[in-house]
Computed example of a mutant assay.
Amino acid sequence: MKTFLNILYWFLIAVALIQFIPVDRTNKPVDPKVDFVKVFKTPQHITSVLRKACYDCHSNETVYPDYAYVAPISWSIKNHINEGREHLNFSEWGTYNKELKKGMLENSAADLKQNRMPLAGYVAQHPEARLTDAEKKRLVNYFEEILKSGNY
């Protein structure tokens, strides 16, 4: 029993100490001239779906939940956000070259069709991000329309 209490004591000390390791949760300012929804003058019904299911990980408008301030959970969340922004950042859409934009639109449509996005772990913590089949179809159609136009 003494060994267990000793382990528990040191574990709690370690958990307390790691809270002092900083995680940068600062969002870069959003330039409306390069933001996806502004560039395409995206209709409100599409914008609302993008914001509820995509923008937390794929934009510079992340809203961090309370649990994102507790290490080591905060490290994992920040890592997921960084990875999401690397694959697609709607806030920086206008800075990408045409080939990259095309690939991002194709990948986004494919991910939605194959239920890879939004991530199940994200939806579990944010039930409002769960997309209906109709919402997925709306997004896929919107991305495919942009692709067909060639004006991305």
Rank of each mutant, 00 (worst) to 15 (best):
S76R: 13
I73V: 15
S59G: 09
W93C: 03
Y67S: 00
N82T: 12
L119H: 11
P72W: 12
N115D: 14
G103H: 08
L105N: 05
G84H: 03
P118E: 05
A109I: 08
L88K: 12
K98L: 08
A109Y: 10
E83C: 00
A71N: 15
N82C: 02
G94W: 06
N115K: 14
A109S: 13
P118Q: 00
M117D: 02
N107F: 05
P118D: 03
L119G: 13
R116G: 04
K101G: 09
E92V: 01
Y96K: 11
L112T: 07
H87T: 10
P65H: 08
G84E: 05
L88V: 09
Q114F: 14
S76E: 10
N82Y: 06
A109N: 10
H87G: 08
K98V: 03
T62A: 14
E83M: 07
T95H: 11
L119Q: 11
S59M: 08
N107Y: 01
N97E: 11
E106P: 01
E106L: 08
F90A: 13
D66M: 12
E83Y: 07
N82W: 04
P65M: 09
K113D: 11
Y69W: 07
H80A: 05
R116Q: 12
N82K: 12
D111S: 12
L119V: 07
I73N: 04
T95R: 13
I81D: 04
N115W: 12
G84W: 03
S91F: 04
I77M: 13
M117K: 14
N115F: 14
Q114H: 13
Y69G: 09
E83Q: 10
Y64D: 07
G84M: 01
H87S: 11
W93P: 02
T95C: 04
W93S: 02
A110R: 14
K98N: 08
L100R: 15
L100N: 11
S74F: 07
S74T: 13
M104A: 10
F90Y: 14
E99R: 01
A109H: 12
D66L: 13
Q114V: 09
E86H: 10
V63W: 01
L105P: 02
L119N: 09
L119T: 00
V63C: 02
Y67D: 13
V63P: 02
K102C: 01
